[in-house]
Nucleic acid binder design. Structure first.
Lengths: 331, 331
DNA sequence: ACCCCTCTTGACGGCGTTTACAAGAAAAAT
DNA sequence: ATTTTTCTTGTAAACGCCGTCAAGAGGGGT
């Protein structure tokens, strides 16, 4: 079928070793044989078999990006950042989406452990990532966004979720809101938890009241956003502002408020989370927390690449977030 | 480092062949040795080396998705569709983004040819995909969206771009528009060309005038959208409706029109292209053509999977599009 | 003793990479 | 001029790990 090194070797009467050396520049080869080899390669359209190469080298020059959440704007840009940096550094990228499903995640990681890739960038489905300790012994891992606080020695790149939650809440408080609701989607992950911590901290700092029922969980889709805000307003009509932690949900939230003729921001102020070009032209333009997912992706891959070369390499990066103030928060 | 089959074999005193048979179920193994083997595998946390397996089997159970465009909503959903179906069928997915860069694309495909994957789903950077004929002889290829009309024997899955362009334009015409502009971003690809053909066909059908200057190319970003619409309105102020072929651009178009205090749809009607949840809550809600990228992805992978098993397999799929009428087109 | 099953095995193959070594030429030393 | 040393260039063979196949071993039945 496909042409192999051996065939090239036979054709021009040199050994396979020589060909390998020409290709990889691992040894000096005379200009003449070199030319001979290159011509034969060109003529036969020869491409060295990656699989064989990988087997021998024990390297694949590939990395995996394992993502759990449904691809919203955030994830898309993360993928783009990782992918771009991977290509720049000569790596291929394997993409695994586990749909917030732990079983899939385990399966995927098990597969990846089998020398399929040189390293993994992981955004886990849950906080309790016990298997990480083991996995990490076999393969460099870098976490993005979500992590397990018990494993401090696994590199990670995150947005400063605590600060983001704190800033957004503070902003609302400073504009007179006293009863601020939160809608989130994925429980038991550090992203959500840290943002909520920031939210609570801000409330505490300003000595404001707080009720558990102001925090509502919903399914992370447009429809989930609708339902969540409906629930929230029913059980806590005192709410005057809502902080929505998910990209997709905020669309549903806006739709539902509009359907109920609740004005934004006059009746309910809104702050969203995530990166989202369209936010600027929504009615009203959406105030939201920007997270730089592209940059997170790039940095994560850089760290991974370093760790592949030097397993001792270790680094935590927490990127600043910024509150992009538009109209939906009423200021 | 990592534990191999040989080590397991030695540990429990069976041959590697037996272990292989247990793992792959290729031959009957007595219940007792079977248990013995499985226990040893479990105990040692053994995972068969994929690379070696791939080399031997001449299969990788992986496919590549090579995309050229910047990840907008459309691409994101396409990736999701392909990825989901891939996992369902037991394949890993390699993602390559070539950023509309032909050189990257060539390089990536060359790499992929080296037995890295069993097949490729490709959305090429350009129409002129001469190398495809050759590539296809080595590896199953399925095209999505974009294709080369000269190669009818390469399977492809596309949206019915012609019909989409025709429908959108017709809709505008039926609502009284006589001077309809188009903003597109990527030239020389069938998607753009077919949509434009549909646009022209509709104009022709209704016996309307047509000027080349109504069709404007812009860079496929938000900023590109701004510039394009500015140019378009300057050189052709008679325009009363615009049909925007790119996801990202339409955001810029809306922004620019708003900045210039041009009302949508009263002064300029707008129809967008692509899938885009936020469209519903933009001011005004955006009428747009929906393309089902998720479905395109799934089908493309199905076809690829079939073609991997049976290289003769061949199929073209053209999916219907639908015009989702909201407010921006003025009806 | 022979045949027939069932289970297990040893050895080979797949395709590059790498290492240790050989052969020949050139340079240096005698 | 001859021997020794040093390079240069090229090679054969081992290696990585698993899958497969033909053949062997062991057990039971007749």
């Amino acid at each position: 079928m496909s042409v192999t090194m051996k065939m090239i070797a036979k054709e021009i009467g040199v050994s396979v070793a020589t060909i390998s050396h020409v290709i990889n520049g691992t040894k000096k080869v005379s200009e003449e044989t070199r030319r001979l080899v290159l011509e034969a390669i060109e003529r036969n359209n020869y491409v060295p078999d990656m699989t064989a190469k990988n087997l021998r080298r024990k390297k694949t020059k590939a990395a995996a990006l394992v993502i759990s959440s449904y691809p919203d704007n955030y994830v898309t840009k993360l993928i783009h950042g990782v992918g771009t940096r991977a290509r720049e550094l000569g790596y291929s990228l394997m993409l695994v989406n586990t749909s917030e499903n732990e079983a899939y995640e385990m399966e995927a990681l098990r597969l990846l452990r089998a020398n399929m890739v040189d390293g993994i960038i992981l955004s886990p489905a849950t906080n309790r990532i016990d298997y990480l300790a083991d996995l990490q012994r076999h393969l460099p891992v870098v976490l993005v966004n979500r992590y397990d606080p018990r494993f401090e020695d696994i590199p990670r790149v995150t947005a400063d979720d605590f600060q983001a939650g704190y800033d957004a809440t503070t902003h609302l408080i400073q504009h007179g809101h006293r009863h601020i609701g939160v809608i989130y989607s994925v429980p038991h992950v550090t992203t959500t938890e840290n943002r909520l911590r920031g939210y609570r901290e801000a409330i505490l700092r300003y000595g404001l009241p707080f009720k558990e029922s102001w925090i509502v969980r919903g399914f992370g889709t447009t429809e989930g956003g609708r339902l969540a805000v409906k629930t929230l307003l029913q059980q806590s009509p005192e709410i005057t502002a809502i902080f929505v932690l998910s990209d997709h949900m905020i669309i549903g939230v806006v739709q539902e408020l509009r359907d109920q003729s609740i004005r934004i921001p006059d009746d309910i102020a809104l702050i969203g989370f995530g990166d989202f070009e369209a936010a600027a032209i929504i009615d009203p333009p959406l105030t939201n927390v920007s997270l730089q997912p592209d940059t997170i992706g790039r940095i994560a891959f850089d760290i991974l690449a370093n760790k592949i070369v030097n397993p001792e390499y270790h680094k935590h990066v927490s990127l600043p977030t910024s509150l992009i103030i538009r109209k939906s928060c009423g200021c």
